[in-house]
Design a protein around this nucleic acid. Structure first.
Length: 275
DNA sequence: CTAAATACCTGATGGC
DNA sequence: TGCCATCAGGTATTTA
């Protein structure tokens, strides 16, 4: 479900509701695993602990926790259908984890497909197994540059679209925003990555940033499942130029949008606007 | 090393 | 109405 804009929206909403230093009463697991086993010690670590900040790295949320002298990070990922929401109701079918705060609120993680993750990190977060190999944040203007993209694409004969979704190259871009960024850049998804010229990289880097920022401004895209913390939808779906629009008219030139499967993922483009 | 396929899981949808 | 196949925004792991 969620790519960078959706995860960032969730992070902002959670940060808004959970002020730094808020005290956690307890965490309850309603099953032992999501995609992976949830650390058995997590409830013990969080009981009576304080939450100081929620950061984002790629599509992961990093919850900074302190309890007496113990400092650590709870890592969470929404997978395809994960969602955090505040509720007072008893756990529903796909509610897997509940966090009770001292102030009486309860935050629940629900995830029908259970592709999400929950883990505990002590020490250097960047060395965590799931974070170690991640590329730069697309929003980082110093790290994610045209030159960087140009260098990293030189030996890549494969389609640029698949490479954009590879989190080792750049993080946060998933199936929706890969197609959308390529539309903005005027590049076909199937174009071999190594055939990109420096000016293409320039444009693409800029397009990725623009589309991600615009999507964050709209609270992300809801196509099917994505819901923000208040249960609302992201409004960017209405502004998508190609994603999920096969056969419909290009919003720029009226040509019918094309679709094909690339590395198992639906890929959309305008045959007239993109080359 | 790359790139594609597979696997993980449930639910919605469409064809018959 | 039921049954089956297909698809869904992610990514670790396996296979080629």
């Amino acid at each position: 479900m969620p790519e960078l804009p959706e995860v960032e929206t969730v992070r902002r909403e959670l940060s808004e509701s959970l002020k730094p230093g808020i005290e956690i009463e307890r965490l309850e697991m309603h099953r032992p695993d999501l995609r992976f086993k949830i650390p058995i010690k997590l409830p013990k670590l969080l009981a009576g602990a304080r939450l100081y900040q929620i950061r984002r790295r790629a599509k992961y949320l990093l919850w900074e926790i302190e309890r007496e002298t113990v400092q650590g990070t709870m890592l969470s990922h929404l997978g395809m259908t994960g969602a955090w929401r505040f509720t007072q109701d008893a756990p529903e079918l796909h509610d897997h984890v509940s966090i009770y705060f001292r102030d009486g609120r309860k935050l629940v993680y629900s995830d029908p497909r259970r592709f999400g993750y929950l883990d505990w990190i002590e020490g250097d977060r960047d060395q965590h197994k799931l974070l170690r190999h991640l590329g730069p944040e697309p929003i980082d203007e110093a790290a994610f540059t045209a030159e960087y993209l140009f260098t990293r694409t030189r030996k890549r004969p494969g389609p640029i679209k698949s490479l954009l979704m590879n989190q080792n190259l750049v993080v946060g871009v998933g199936n929706i925003y890969a197609s959308e960024a390529l539309f903005r850049a005027g590049l076909r998804p199937l174009k071999p990555a190594r055939s990109l010229r420096l000016e293409n990289c320039e444009k693409l880097v800029q397009s990725i940033r623009e589309v991600l920022w615009a999507a964050i401004d709209s609270g992300g895209s809801t196509i099917r499942d994505y819901k923000n913390v208040s249960g609302g939808s992201g409004e960017f779906a209405q502004k998508l130029m190609v994603y999920d629009r096969v056969g419909e008219k290009c919003r720029k030139c009226k040509t019918a949008i094309k679709m094909r499967t690339l590395a198992g993922r639906s890929t959309y483009w305008c045959p007239a606007c993109q080359s």
